[in-house]
Structure formats: C-alpha cells, structure tokens
C-alpha cells in the first residue's frame, strides 16, 4: 500500500476493498475531483489538480476496473462495481494511468505545484 496514505485513509481503503457491493459505502474524504469509470472509460480523460489534492475514483460499471499508474506510483488494485478509491497526489508531474484489466482504458492527471493559499 502506498506510503502516501494516512492511517485514516488506509483504514478507509481497507474497508472499501473488503466490503461487498451491497455493503454501505464508507464515507469519502473531501476531494477536489471525482473520476467516474463508466462504459469502460474514465470520464475525465485529462484532469489537472494541485499538489496535495485528493482525487476520488468511482467504478460505475458492471465490470471490475483498476486505476493504475504506468510508472506504478499509484494503484487502486481491483475496484468492483460501486467501488471507490482515493489518492492524494503529493508530487508535481504528469501521471498516465490505465486499467490493468482493460489496458486500452487510459487517462492522464497533471499535478501542478501547490495552489496559492
């Protein structure tokens, strides 16, 4: 599991991954953007966020998918139907990601330096 996760996020992720589709969806932490996976596509194929931002991914398909960085810096592992996963981007750069189960599904997230407060 990514070192980037706080204990709370890790616990949340563990709950997300172990509950069935019919179990109550755990509360999500506030995120700057939500990427929905629908019809074998990431609905935000190109997304820009700032360093430190959290992004939520939701699988709206009947089929399982993953959110996997080509540089392996993040990986949701298997997201079942209605499964959610969150990731905090801590390093600026351009991140290409894809679905390990359907590698033709691809998208990109650009992480900009931290937003001015």
């Amino acid at each position: 599991m990514s070192r980037l996760f706080t204990g709370l996020q890790a616990a949340l992720l563990a709950v997300t991954l172990t509950t069935g589709a019919n179990a109550a969806v755990p509360p999500l932490l506030p995120a700057v953007a939500t990427v929905h996976i629908k019809d074998f596509k990431y609905n935000l194929p190109a997304l820009a966020v700032h360093m430190g931002d959290r992004v939520t991914f939701v699988n709206d398909d009947d089929e399982a998918h993953t959110v996997t960085a080509t540089d392996k810096s993040f990986d949701s592992e298997g997201l079942d139907t209605a499964g959610t996963w969150q990731h905090v981007f801590t390093k600026p750069g351009t991140y290409h990601y894809f679905c390990e189960l359907h590698p033709y599904m691809k998208a990109t997230i650009v992480v900009l330096p931290a937003a001015a407060k």
Binding site: A64, T66, T68, D75, E77, G78, E100, L101
Partner: peptide, 10 residues
C-alpha cells in the same frame, strides 16, 4: 489452474 488477468491484479 492457470491464471487470468483477474487473478493477477497488481
């Protein structure tokens, strides 16, 4: 048993 892609996620 041989694996499918669902057996080797990650």
């Amino acid at each position: 048993v041989l694996p499918g892609e669902h057996d080797v996620i990650g």
